[in-house]
């Protein structure tokens, strides 16, 4: 029965306008509704499918400010059993290396974990590096960009989808898997799941609790930081083709000019 850890992140809702703070170019968390990242919902779903088939336990691990509790509750209401929430003002502005280090320490708090499931890339930062760095820090195999996950005893088989094609990966547990968009369709939390979530244990930890020095994390100590940011230029008006009997070929000409056909 696998002991599964799922990494989840609270991100600004992709339906709302997302901004960086003007002062230090970190995420402006107040400008948009905060939600559990959709790719993490898929990660939770995959963990729950494994649990439903094979038993075991699902622990959610999240690094984020206090209000990330909402994202954690969502994962719990979907059916995860318990959670670890690392929340510390010192973490503000941390980069992927620092975040992965904190996550590795937090995953270490989950006794006897077999499998860590993460989304392949958060919809806000879009670095897509945390699962791989985490696997390195934990010293376990990384099976990233999975579109299919199979677990047979302690053998993990994954189909990785990339632009080059499909790669079939296999590793022994413990391991880190990151999942892509095609992995599954996440469930909606049921009303009973929502009601049960409140009673599930959430352990809240600071970086000190993880044995990490606050001086190692946060924007001031990050290896990378955003220097400049500008909003995307607005989309320009399209080109209108009036059909005077040659509409079809004009559209085709346009597509050829754009190298689309």
């Amino acid at each position: 029965m696998p002991n599964i850890v799922v990494l989840v992140k609270q991100v600004p809702d992709t339906y709302s306008e997302r901004k960086l703070a003007e002062s230090d170019h970190t995420l402006d968390r107040d400008s948009a509704d905060a939600v559990l990242d959709e790719i993490n919902e898929r990660a939770v779903e995959e963990a729950l499918l494994l649990k439903e088939a094979q038993g075991g336990e699902v622990t959610v691990v999240s690094v984020g400010p206090d209000r990330a509790t909402d994202a954690i509750r969502k994962a719990l209401s979907m059916g995860a059993d318990k959670a670890v929430h690392v929340s510390d003002e010192a973490l503000r502005g941390s980069d992927v290396l620092q975040t992965a280090k904190v996550l590795a320490a937090a995953v270490g708090k989950v006794e006897g974990y077999d499998l860590v499931i993460a989304g392949n890339e958060a919809s806000d930062g879009q670095a897509g590096a945390v699962p791989a760095i985490l696997a390195e820090l934990l010293g376990v195999p990384q099976l990233t960009h999975a579109r299919k996950v199979e677990l047979d005893g302690t053998t993990l088989k994954v189909e990785r989808e990339s632009e080059e094609g499909i790669t079939r990966l296999e590793a022994s547990l413990p391991a880190v898997v990151s999942v892509g968009e095609k992995i599954n369709e996440p469930r909606y939390p049921s009303f009973k799941g929502i009601m049960a979530a409140k009673k599930k244990p959430v352990e809240t930890l600071t970086v000190a609790d993880l044995g990490i020095d606050a001086g190692e994390v946060g924007l001031g100590n990050a290896w990378t930081s955003v220097l400049e940011a500008a909003p995307k230029p607005p989309r320009t008006a399209g080109q209108r083709v009036t059909d005077e009997g040659d509409g079809g070929s004009k559209v085709a000409e346009y597509l050829v000019a754009q190298k689309l056909i």
Binding site: S77, Y188, P189, I194, A197
Partner: peptide
């Protein structure tokens, strides 16, 4: 309550 708010957001998402 937190549960009512979570219910609203789950239902809205389904909708």
């Amino acid at each position: 309550s937190d549960e009512r708010i979570a219910l609203r957001s789950a239902v809205f998402e389904l909708g």
